[in-house]
Simulated scan of single mutants.
Amino acid sequence: NAYCKVFSRCGLEYVIVQAESGEMGGSGSHQFTVPCENGEDIIVYTEDNAQAWNLEKAPVDPLSKQPPVDVGPAALVYTPKAGKIDDACAYMNVTADQLIKTLIYKSGQDLIVVLVRGDHDVNLEKLTRLMGGAHIEMAQEGDIVELTGAAVGFAGPVGLCDKAAQVFIDYGVAAMAVGATGANKTDYHIKNVVPGRDFPLAGNHIHIVDVRNAVEGDTYEGKKLLFRRGIEVGQVFKLGTKYSEKLNARYLDADGVEKPLLMGCYGIGINRIIAAAIENGHDDNGMILPISIAPWEVIVTPAAPDEDVVQAAEQVYEAFCDKGLEVLLDDRDLRAGVKFKDADLLGIPVRVTIGKKSLADGNVEIKCRSENDVVRVPLAETTETVANRIADMKAALTS
């Protein structure tokens, strides 16, 4: 709730998503993400909005098993220099979803083989979780050549599964009726590979699992998964007793029993909050910032160098200061249009303009950054009018 209040008071619309704990560990993690077209994160959520995850955490249902196909025995195909998916597909006249991609990772001294479809990507966080949190990294070229007997880009599961410490086969591969894959021979691939016939789908070290990123068309618990981009602005980790037990950090409970501390880790991205607010609040003239995080609440702009205009602007500025408002006086010797542009660029929520003509009528002009209309009010009512407008803006963030 504390995080929710912080982000709401910052004027952000956010989504709470389940996230991976990664090497931080613990029993779980939640990420606070602001939906934004230019965000670096991807939010995955069910079509009924009941559940949401970041991409690293998002689970998928197993794909339906394809009906068997009588394709005959596996066949070796010469594919010179076709170590990339697109090149291999072109040589064998297959699409990426018909290719079995073989990736080799290393954990300690163990080599781990992971199989996904050619149009899917391995999810390293899911793989780390499947390995019990052990550190995993891509195997070096020398390890790959030693394991497969081939150059990088030509690995395949046929004859390879028994050589690896662990083999993780994604549901998508297990569901394939037939596919093409690397031949463990430089410049060669194999067509007509049938999972379960040409390489095993069961064994003590072989696991059929969800180990890839979710993609368009996937479901979870039968519900269609939808995707949108966002900016992560905060994250909470439930560490439990993972670190307190190692540190021997303990406390005595009400019964005098010694127990390990329950720990949590909390982070808020200050810079990210500003970035998210700007991405979702701007126009061609600049930022449109929430009142709570704008550099000032109100700017006073004298629109002419005349002494009476300047004096009135200074009086309004002083009145705002006495009222406790965060106010900026733009007393630069510049044209009014330049001052207006700069005020818009900075995203200051309220602009009060004192012009020669309006002042002669006993009025000032008030314009909110998020609105197009300009309102004229009597000079004597300026302070209360602006203070009430700012109070309304703040109240809207906490309601």
Rank of each mutant, 00 (worst) to 15 (best):
C4T: 14
V6A: 13
V6M: 13
V6H: 00
F7H: 04
R9A: 08
Y14G: 02
V15R: 15
A19E: 14
A19L: 08
S21R: 10
M24V: 15
S29C: 15
H30D: 07
V34S: 03
N49P: 01
Q51H: 12
A52Y: 11
L55D: 13
E56F: 11
E56T: 05
E56S: 12
G72E: 11
P73V: 09
V77T: 02
Y78C: 10
P80Q: 00
P80M: 06
K84F: 12
K84G: 08
D86E: 15
D87A: 15
A90P: 04
Y91I: 10
M92K: 09
N93V: 05
V94Q: 04
V94C: 12
K101R: 15
Y105R: 02
R117K: 14
D121V: 10
K126L: 06
K126C: 02
L130G: 10
G132N: 13
G132K: 13
G133F: 05
G133C: 08
G133E: 02
E137S: 13
G142T: 13
D143V: 11
D143E: 14
E146C: 08
F154A: 01
F154E: 07
A155M: 09
G156I: 09
D162Y: 11
A165K: 15
V173D: 03
A175K: 07
A175I: 03
A177W: 12
G179M: 12
A180E: 04
T181F: 01
G182M: 01
G182H: 08
N184P: 07
K185C: 00
Y188F: 14
R197M: 02
V209K: 10
D210C: 05
D210F: 06
N213H: 15
N213A: 11
G217A: 07
D218H: 04
E221A: 02
K223W: 01
K224F: 05
L226H: 06
F227Y: 03
R229P: 01
E232H: 13
G234T: 10
K238L: 14
T241R: 06
Y243E: 00
Y243V: 04
R250S: 13
D253C: 03
G256L: 08
V257C: 03
V257D: 09
V257S: 01
M263Y: 00
G264W: 02
C265K: 09
I270P: 00
I270L: 15
N271E: 05
I273P: 10
A277D: 07
I278L: 14
N280T: 07
G281N: 06
N285M: 03
P295A: 03
V300E: 02
A304I: 04
P305M: 01
E307V: 08
Q315M: 08
Y317P: 04
Y317T: 04
F320S: 01
K323V: 01
K323P: 05
L325G: 11
V327D: 11
R332V: 08
L334W: 04
V338Y: 06
K339Q: 05
K339I: 00
K341Y: 10
A343S: 13
A343W: 05
G347W: 03
G347P: 13
I348G: 09
P349S: 01
R351V: 06
T353Q: 09
S358V: 10
A360Q: 14
G362A: 12
R369P: 10
N372L: 13
D373Y: 05
V375H: 15
P378H: 07
L379R: 14
T382M: 07
V386L: 12
A387K: 12
M393R: 08
M393N: 08
A396L: 09
S399N: 14
S399I: 12
